[in-house]
Structure formats: structure tokens, C-alpha cells
Design a binder for these strands. Structure first.
Lengths: 203, 203
DNA sequence: GTCTATATTGAGATAGAC
DNA sequence: GTCTATCTCAATATAGAC
């Protein structure tokens, strides 16, 4: 009932929670969570409105499950051994690369997370977990400053905000079927963060 | 009726369009446009719901006027002489700096613009104008690549997206009454874009 | 697991008095 | 320029049959 077993997603009927959530979250991201009615969801699912309640207790529970997927994946990156041990510069590179990859591979769920406004307790709790992740990147930049590998005119807090701003903005334009792979994108972000956009010789 | 004349914004009554819009847009940004009901707006304004209709024909018209403010200010930066003539690197610096300053000084209106989902013709038109601005930054990065001042391993399109991603993310955390001035913030963004976060000597 | 009702609430918007 | 009262519609959610 909770864990998907085998087939799932046919032409029309026979949804399980995960396959239904894919359709639902895509709709949330296109129109916004609040602007997406159960009627629209039912239409896109090819079901009646009431059938949805067989899988989810409420519209907000769909949001809750989706946000959990995004947060679990992001937290795994920031709590991994490569993020908590070793040279600080390597740790920073690891979490930035990992965040880009998670974002690309779980784009719909992360997109939903990044657009929360905190209108309900469930949204507030998700935002709390997200802020905890932000805090971990900031802590890494503080270590970097202390050891002298962060340029001294850059506040760790500003570095963290701008870095995450850049990374998070990727959900707005990355296309899984596009020409750029997540790995290439992660390389571009890391290079920009490391040494900027300018042709090095023109410094 | 359309243009504000003199005083405006008192303790409770006597709103004109602009002073009312300030309150309205703040509410939109806190809860999201769709999740903000006229009832909530009336409460925050200290008015009844129907009184709002003396100033705006509809909820969506409030959005339209607010988006116009943001877009007019941004377009002014990208159409200015400093953005269209002179060395390409200077033009890029000018539009990035200008975008950061406009964003800080018109934060509520720009925030609203950046969160649109395109659910109505009015939203779609605003998104079209916004894409036009994106296109102008991309064109500048293409010129930069052609003259050899953009690092060759960075696609102009990716450079544009990551740069605007970083700039636009500022609406999520900039505080007008905080310790960082818009000018300092613009400097930080420009330095990060130019040469990255690393202590230069550690390259 | 899905359906056809339907209950209930709150939304955006209007009428007309003051 | 603001109010009270009301209209209309669409939203989330439930009941109960198949």
C-alpha cells in the first residue's frame, strides 16, 4: 500500500502512490500548488476527483510525501562521509556537486521544495529541514574562510546564499532530455564558483 | 485616479493605488499570489473586501500593475546606453550591477515577477517580457565569448542562466534594513562572477 | 480501485446605502 | 472611499454504490 511492488503506470488506471505522485507533482510545478485544483489533477490522471482520495488522505499529504523525497535525497548528500570529513575544499566541492546532481535527478520534487511559502505546518517543517541544509553549507564556507581558502572579501554567509541561489535556479531551466548532462552542469557550477566566468588569461 | 498626487499612506484609511499596492504585494509574497485571498488582503489593509474594488478592478489587476513596476525598472537597465554601447565586459558589469540594484530597491515587485507560473494571459505576457531581458544578457555573453573574454569552457547560455540564477535568488534573503547594502551585494556578485570564490593566491 | 452524487466552505466579485 | 449584504461559482472532501 505504501511501497510500490512491480509494474505500475498503465494507459489509464491502476495507479500506485508513486506513479500517481509523478503526475500530481508535475501539475503542481506547472501551475503552482495552490492554483492546482483536485479537478485538474483528476483530469490529468484520467480519474475522478474522489478516486484520488483512495491514494492520499488530502491534497496536502501529496505535498508532504513529495517534499520528503526531495529532502531525504539532499540530506543524504550533506550527511555523507565525503561531506563531513577530509579537506574542507573537497567537502565543499562534494556537496555542491551532489546538490546539483540530486536536483537534476529529482527535479520535480526539489522544485516543489524550493517554492514553498510556509502557509501550513507541513510546509514550515519542510522549510526548517531545508534551512538546516543551508546552514551546513554555510558552516563549510566558514571553515574555508578560517583556513584561508575563501577569498577574504567574501562573507561565508553571502558565499553560501549566492552558491545555493545559483544551484537552486537550475530547476527553472534544466531539462533531463536536453543536451547538458547533470555532470557537465555540476562542472560548470563548480568552475564558476571556483574561478569565475572570465577567461583566466585575461585576468 | 491613476497617478498618485501627494500625501498617501495614513494610519488606516485613505489609500491610493500605490500605497495599497505596497500592502497587497507584501501579502502576495508572504503567502503566494494564489493562496492570498481578498479576505486576507482586506484584513491587512484594515478595509472591507468590497472597498478594495474601488482601487482595483480585480485581484489580477493588482498583479498586473505590480509586475509592470518590476519590468519597467529592469528593462530600463538593459536598454540604457551603458548596456548597449562600449566594451562588452563593461556592459556585462553594468547590467549585472543594475539588475542587483533594481532587485534590491524594488524587491517586492521583482519577487512577484520571479515567481510567476504563467497561469493567465497577464502572467504569460510578463514572463515574455522577462525572457526578453534574459535574452539580452545571453547576447552579451555571446559577444564576450566571440571576443575571447569569456572562458571557452562556459556556454554563454549557461553563463547567463547561472548568473541570473544567482542574482534573482537575492530576493529570497536580501533585507533592506540589513547590514549589507545593495552596492556591496552588487560588488560581491560581480567579483564571484568575475573570479570566483577562491582566495586568488590559492589558485 | 474507481465511480456518481453531494455536502460544505470559502473564494472573487457586485449592489447599493452612507 | 468605505461599508453591509449578497450573489455565484469552484474548491476540498465525504458517502456509498459498483
Amino acid at each position: 500500500m505504501t511501497t510500490a511492488t512491480e509494474p505500475a503506470r498503465r494507459g489509464r488506471p491502476g495507479y500506485d502512490r508513486d506513479s500517481m505522485l509523478e503526475v500530481v507533482v508535475a501539475a503542481f510545478n506547472e501551475r503552482g500548488y495552490d492554483a492546482t485544483s483536485l479537478g485538474v489533477l483528476a483530469e490529468r490522471l484520467g480519474l475522478s476527483k474522489s478516486a484520488i482520495y483512495h491514494h492520499f488522505a488530502s491534497k496536502e499529504q501529496m505535498l508532504e510525501v513529495a517534499l520528503g523525497k526531495a529532502l531525504d535525497a539532499l540530506e543524504a548528500v550533506f550527511d555523507s562521509p565525503e561531506a563531513t570529513t577530509g579537506p574542507v575544499v573537497s567537502r565543499i566541492r562534494h556537496v555542491i556537486r551532489g546538490a546539483v546532481l540530486v536536483l537534476c535527478e529529482n527535479k520535480p520534487y526539489v522544485t516543489l521544495l524550493l517554492r514553498l511559502r510556509g502557509n501550513t505546518p507541513i510546509e514550515l517543517e519542510a522549510m526548517r529541514r531545508r534551512r538546516e541544509i543551508d546552514r551546513k553549507l554555510r558552516a563549510l564556507f566558514e571553515l574555508s574562510r578560517d583556513e584561508g581558502t575563501l577569498r577574504p572579501d567574501m562573507e561565508p554567509r553571502v558565499a553560501e546564499r549566492l552558491t545555493f541561489g545559483m544551484v537552486n535556479s537550475i530547476v527553472e531551466w534544466y531539462r533531463p532530455d536536453g543536451p547538458i548532462t547533470p555532470e557537465q552542469l555540476a562542472d560548470s557550477v563548480l568552475e564558476l564558483v571556483r574561478t569565475g566566468l572570465r577567461e583566466p588569461s585575461s585576468l
